[in-house]
C-alpha cells in the first residue's frame, strides 16, 4: 500500500513540475507582450507607417524599414523556396542511398546549427564584395536565403517522407515516370507540410538582424527601396537602432515597431496553419 502511495505522489509531483514549466513559459511571454503593448500601442498611427526615420522621435516612422522587410522577404522566398524544395525532392526521391548522400545530408543538418552571424560574414564576402552587389536588398535576401535553406530542406523532406510509399507504388505500377509520380501524387500531398515549413523558415528570416548588419544594411534610410539593388533597412535593424538611443521617445517607437513585427510574424504563422488545414482537408486519407 505504501509503495503504491509513493508512486502516486511521484506522479503528482511530476505533473506539477511539468505544469509549472508550461505556465512559466507562457507567463514570461505574456508579460513581454503586455510590456511591449503598453509602451508601443501609443505610437501606432497612420503616420508611424508612412514616415521615414528621423532625428526627432515624434516624427520617426517605419516606412523604409517595413518596405525593406517586405522586399527582403519576397526575394528571400523567391530564391530559397525553389532551391530548398528541389533539394529536398532530390534527396528524398532521387538520391541513391550511398555515402555521398549521407555526407550531404549530415552537412545540411550541420548548416542548420551554424550561428546566423557566420552567414552574415559569408554574405559579406560572397555577395557584397565577391559579386559586387554592395549593401543591396539582393545581397541581404541572398544571405538570408542561405540561412534558411537548411530549415526549408529539412521541413520539405519531412513532408515528402510523410507521403505513404503505397501511393508511389500505385502510381509507378500504372506506368508513371518518376517525375509524374512526384508531380501528380507526392507533391500535392506534401504541399501542406512544405508550405508550413516555408512559412516557418521565413518567420525565422524576418527576425534576423545580425547577418544583415554584418553585410552592412543601414539603419537610416530616408527613401523607399525601389529595386533589388537599392540600399535598405529592415524592421529588426530599425528596432535595434531605436532601442540603443538614449531618448525615451525612441524607445516607444521601438516598442511600436516590435508590435508591427510581431503582427507580421503572427499573421504569417496564422496563414501557415490555415493553409495546412485547408489543404489537408482537400487531400485527407
Amino acid at each position: 500500500m505504501e509503495r503504491r502511495q509513493r508512486r502516486e505522489i511521484a506522479g503528482k509531483v511530476f505533473e506539477a513540475v511539468a505544469l509549472t514549466a508550461t505556465v512559466f513559459g507562457l507567463v514570461v511571454l505574456a508579460m513581454l507582450l503586455f510590456d511591449v503593448a503598453r509602451r508601443g500601442l501609443g505610437v501606432l498611427s497612420w503616420s508611424f507607417f508612412t514616415r521615414y526615420p528621423s532625428r526627432f522621435p515624434e516624427q520617426a516612422g517605419i516606412r523604409s524599414a517595413l518596405l525593406g522587410t517586405v522586399w527582403v522577404m519576397a526575394l528571400t522566398a523567391l530564391f530559397s523556396v525553389p532551391v530548398g524544395v528541389a533539394a529536398a525532392i532530390y534527396l528524398e526521391e532521387y538520391a541513391p542511398r550511398n555515402r555521398l548522400t549521407r555526407f550531404i545530408e549530415l552537412n545540411i543538418n550541420n548548416l542548420a546549427g551554424v550561428p546566423s552571424i557566420i552567414y552574415g560574414l559569408l554574405g559579406l564576402e560572397l555577395f557584397v564584395r565577391g559579386l559586387k552587389l554592395e549593401r543591396s536588398v539582393l545581397a541581404g535576401a541572398l544571405t538570408l536565403s542561405l540561412l534558411i535553406l537548411p530549415i526549408l530542406i529539412a521541413a520539405s523532406r519531412e513532408a515528402l517522407r510523410a507521403v505513404p510509399m503505397s501511393l508511389r507504388e500505385a502510381a509507378f505500377a500504372l506506368g508513371a515516370t518518376r517525375w509524374q509520380v512526384i508531380r501528380h501524387q507526392v507533391l500535392p500531398l506534401a504541399l501542406p507540410g512544405i508550405l508550413t515549413g516555408m512559412i516557418l523558415a521565413l518567420s525565422r528570416a524576418i527576425g534576423e538582424t545580425a547577418p544583415l548588419i554584418t553585410i552592412g544594411a543601414l539603419t537610416f534610410i530616408a527613401f523607399d527601396p525601389k529595386g533589388p539593388l537599392d540600399k535598405f533597412t529592415v524592421l529588426p535593424i530599425q528596432i535595434f537602432n531605436w532601442v540603443s538611443r538614449p531618448q525615451a521617445g525612441f524607445h516607444a517607437r521601438a516598442a511600436g515597431a516590435i508590435l508591427v513585427l510581431l503582427a507580421v510574424l503572427l499573421s504569417m504563422n496564422g496563414l501557415a496553419i490555415y493553409l495546412r488545414y485547408r489543404l489537408q482537408r482537400r487531400y485527407q486519407w
Binding site: 503505397s166 501511393l167 500504372l174 506506368g175 508513371a176 501528380h184 500531398l189
Partner: peptide, 30 residues
C-alpha cells in the same frame, strides 16, 4: 511501358486521395 501493359493490384487498397473519377483517369492522363 512494361508497367502500363502489366498492371498491378496491391495487398492493401491504395487509392489516390483524389476523386473516384481521377483515380481511374490517372493512368490514361499520364
Amino acid at each position: 511501358e512494361v508497367r502500363r501493359r502489366i498492371g498491378m493490384v496491391f495487398q492493401k487498397p491504395n487509392p489516390f486521395p483524389k476523386s473516384i473519377y481521377e483515380n481511374v483517369a490517372f493512368g490514361p492522363r499520364i
